[in-house]
Write a protein that binds this DNA or RNA. Structure first.
Length: 554
RNA sequence: GCGCCCGUAGCCCAGGGGAUAGGGCGUCAGCCUCCGGAGCUGGAGAUCGCAGGUUCGAAUCCUGCCGGGCGCACCA
């Protein structure tokens, strides 16, 4: 509808110019928007105001000039008028709306899909928690946002791969091994003081017991570094399996799990460093090797190989990101915790150093989740090992509610997650508010079938009955879906879909409360069924972009 | 100290330059003889942190300040 009006405005301006009523054929970018207030029409354009300087005319005058050209051949409008400082307001004929429902019915699950990606291969990497401990609520938010984003982008025509990067190499894994080994030693009565830098969580002891169960005391015979590395391997596998299980319970399916260790095994990390030395991007100073990230806007250069010979995580991250593009992705999106934001410039620098453009890399930062219960904070500290595991949250509130709540805020805004609230089946909890619409409509459809009502395809005569303000408002809201999805995809902001669904649900509930779908008038009943079934489809469509189900019954 | 994010009603948040700033919670007053009340309608409640600037027009863009969070390792 917006596109149609935009074309009409451009056409009108051209015609006016040819008749000598406008001074210039040049047109600025014409924008059509939906005004907030009913008395300002269904749509408006700022054309006259933005053209004022080009035309050297007063905005109001321009508006009045083009209006006759707009109304001349368009039977779309009841009226078009100039208003305010120079807006042109369009009042669309109510009968212009129902045809839009046909589109919803025909496209179904594809309704509203913006044609943005054109099959472009992109990757969304998210969660990628180190296999040193179970996933906690914060990871859950990253998972919900990352997955929804992947769904939205895929819906928008991109060829999306979901990837999990496994940090299965380096110091943290070694620390994990040490932690487990010490607990293991304790099981055999060897008293070792547990270091502060080791992982404190109870799951470490569980893993030590598993090792004990599967291979007895033989690790005690090993040299310590070998025992530690055995423990590390064993523990990382158990933890990673646990992570996979959590993600699966959360409804997540990854396309690829990428191991950091394989980068080392294939010599990719060394390769990047050697190549850097040849091109001068990597240099030696104070016995360490540094990457010249300052050349690409970072505030200082970063170490890739420490003076003790250890490579840093940054080194493998350079290799990893290069690898992503080599695998054919033209665009890469990383979803990180907001506390990693300081890492962005150096990764960006590394990517630009390999000849990729700025627009090929995005980082989505996920802000903190504050876990509450009845408004009181639930203590969480990863260091002390007292975090709330994602699985506990899912068990308590369900993965649907958890997902939806994670998506009720902009991802860079901190989120209060109240466990008590998330379980409530009231208006406080927007998941049910939206799902309820779907179930309610499903129920209406069941009733209609019991009464033997045969639904009909779209026809102008039947749909002519859809004239109530609540009906028009419902259709208008559905017409906004496409733009909402497009914006969500372009800005990588899944929460826009969440808010949209709440708005649509609200429009439906208001309608439902005032009008009966299955009413005395058989023709009107058919039209309303058609309308309400369209709403059901859009709700389903939107919820599926968030990874949330749409129940037929609740 | 430097960098990034946030500051919108009593509370939690939406608002990618447009007219009279929206929704939820809470609060007050109402709505089921009727398709699912997990619902609906209406009140009250806002100096959009402060001060400048750009613009015909700023919650939105720019600069400075104030307040909060997070980062600033040869850690990740």
């Amino acid at each position: 509808m917006k596109e149609t009006i935009k074309r009409l405005v451009i056409k009108a301006a051209h015609a006016a110019y040819e008749n000598g009523e406008l001074n210039s054929p040049d047109l600025p970018e014409v924008e059509i928007e939906a005004p907030k207030f009913g008395n300002q029409g269904d749509f408006s354009t700022n054309f006259a105001m933005v053209s004022a300087s080009i035309q050297k005319m007063a905005p109001k005058k321009i508006a009045e000039t083009i209006i006759p050209y707009l109304t001349k051949n368009a039977d779309l409008f009841d009226k078009v008028e100039a208003a305010g400082p120079g807006f042109v307001n369009f009042f669309v004929k109510p009968s212009a709306w129902p045809p839009m429902l046909k589109d919803v019915h025909e496209k179904g699950d594809r309704f509203g899909a913006p044609d943005l990606g054109k099959g472009e291969k992109i990757q969304v990497e998210f969660v990628s928690a180190n296999p040193t401990g179970p996933l906690h609520v914060g990871h859950g938010r990253g998972a919900a946002v990352g997955d929804a984003l992947a769904r939205i982008l895929s819906f928008s025509g991109y060829d999306v791969q979901r990837e999990y990067y496994i940090n299965d190499s380096g110091r943290q894994i070694n620390t994990l091994g040490r932690s487990v080994f010490i607990r293991y030693e304790e099981l055999y009565g060897i008293d070792v003081t547990f270091p502060d830098d080791c992982y404190q969580g109870g799951y470490i002891l569980d893993i030590a017991r598993e090792i004990q169960a599967s291979r007895g005391n033989d690790l005690l015979e090993f040299e310590e570094h070998r025992a530690v590395s055995e423990c590390a391997r064993f523990a990382a596998k158990i933890i990673l399996d646990d992570i996979r299980l959590d993600l699966k319970t959360f409804g997540l399916v990854y396309d690829n799990w990428y191991s950091e260790q394989t980068l080392y095994d294939a010599g990719k990390v060394d390769g990047v460093i050697t190549e850097g030395r040849e091109t001068g991007l990597v240099y030696e100073k104070d016995g360490a090797l540094w990457f010249k990230t300052t050349r690409f806007g970072d505030e200082k250069d970063r170490v890739v190989v420490r003076s003790n010979g250890d490579t840093t995580y940054f080194a493998s991250d350079i290799a990893y990101h290069r690898e992503k593009y080599d695998r054919g992705f033209s665009r890469v999106i990383d979803v990180w915790g907001a506390d990693h934001h300081g890492y962005i410039p150096r990764i960006r620098a590394a990517i630009e150093a390999s000849g990729r453009g700025k627009e090929q890399f995005d980082v989505i930062l996920i802000q903190l989740v504050n876990l509450l219960r009845d408004g009181e904070p639930v203590a969480m500290s990863t260091r002390a090992g007292e975090f709330v595991a994602l699985k506990d949250v899912i068990n308590e509130v369900g993965s649907e509610a958890a997902r939806f709540i994670f998506l009720t805020r902009h991802h860079e805004s901190p989120l209060d997650f109240d466990l008590a609230l998330a379980k409530k089946k009231t208006n406080d909890n927007p998941v049910y508010y939206v799902q309820y619409v779907h179930a309610r409509i499903a129920s209406i459809i069941r009733n209609s079938m019991e009464r033997g009502i045969e639904t009909v395809p779209y026809s102008e005569e039947t749909m002519a009955g859809l004239v109530a303000p609540e009906e028009i408002s419902l259709i208008k809201t559905m017409a906004e879906y496409r733009e909402t999805v497009r914006t969500a995809a372009e800005l990588m902001e899944p929460h826009r879909i969440t808010y949209y669904l709440i708005t649509l649900a609200s429009a439906f509930h208001a309608y439902y409360n005032k009008h009966r779908v299955l009413c005395e008038d058989p023709v009107l009943t058919l039209a309303r069924l058609y309308l309400v079934m369209a709403v059901k489809k859009v709700i389903h469509n939107g919820l599926s972009l968030l990874g949330v189900s749409s129940p037929e019954k609740m």
